[in-house]
């Protein structure tokens, strides 16, 4: 992990930046140490954000999208009531065989105290998506405005390479649409009609899914992601896709 941090900083930043650089290095070390146990792998919480958005001092002005939609998932609040899954299916006409979001269950029988947890998953709307890179016809693409990974279903040839490329299993072939289908943060069904939340976030009784604009410093997602008191992580950081769905507890 420390090797990776060093590699991230291989770029020569010039002598005048040394104190700042050292400060960041030191901070990152702290973040790395506060990294939490998630899915069998120690992920440094904030260092993963550093890898996504450069350093925390600079990035606010550097968010590539406006609004930069993001979701923070409070993993410990999920009770698998699956109202989000139902709301998603109803809102986006997801057929019975498929899903755009799902709740996974992790049992740890020898854990102290709570022995079960639920992990909601959905498209991570990555900043460096594999799916859009591999699509031969640009049928899936990153929206230049808001960064949502969209589908242009008329162009989908059904080669399913995007499904192979996705490290989050967020895509499925929709036989009714004759195209691959995926979460688009309810852009066509809600956001573009003035709604502020995705269907799943609105349906959640436990405020597990917090949805908002990361480029807005006053937003809840911004405040939840850009703090160092509680661990924040992403799923499968090693896949290098720079996801925009974050996880936290508490």
């Amino acid at each position: 992990m420390f090797d990776k941090i060093k590699l991230d900083n291989l770029k020569n930043e010039g002598v005048e930046n040394v104190p700042m650089k050292e400060r960041r290095e030191f901070l990152k070390m702290g973040f790395a140490l506060t990294g939490i146990f998630a899915g069998g792998t120690i992920f440094s919480a904030v260092s993963s954000i550093d890898r996504v958005f450069a350093s925390s001092e600079e990035f606010a002005s550097k968010y590539p999208y406006k609004p930069h939609y993001s979701m923070v998932i409070h993993q410990d609040r999920c009770i698998d009531c699956e109202r989000c899954v139902e709301a998603c299916a109803a809102t986006n006409h997801v057929p019975h065989e498929g899903y755009r979001t799902r709740i996974l269950q992790r049992d740890v029988p020898d854990a102290v105290g709570q022995k079960r947890e639920f992990i909601p998953v959905l498209c991570n709307q990555c900043n460096l998506p594999q799916c859009t890179r591999v699509c031969p016809t640009k049928a899936t693409y990153k929206d230049p405005q808001n960064g949502i990974v969209m589908m242009d279903i008329a162009k989908c040839i059904g080669c399913l390479t995007c499904q192979e490329g996705c490290p989050y299993n967020a895509r499925y072939f929709n036989e009714e649409k004759h195209a691959v289908d995926k979460c688009n943060f309810c852009f066509d069904t809600r956001l573009s009609k003035g709604e502020k939340l995705t269907g799943c976030a609105a349906a959640c009784p436990a405020q597990c899914r917090v949805f908002g604009d990361l480029s807005d410093q006053s937003s809840e997602v911004y405040r939840k992601v850009h703090q160092i008191e509680k661990a924040v992580w992403v799923l499968r950081p090693e896949a290098g896709t720079r996801p925009n769905v974050f996880y936290t507890k508490g």
């Binding site: 890179r133 031969p136 640009k138 040839i157 059904g158 080669c159 399913l160």
Partner: peptide, 26 residues
Amino acid sequence: EIKIPWRMAIYNVISPNITSNIWWMG
């Protein structure tokens, strides 16, 4: 195996994605 092969014939030409290995291979 490809679900909608005829779309490939059209969109491989008018909407090419040059970062896609599938596109290059085809």
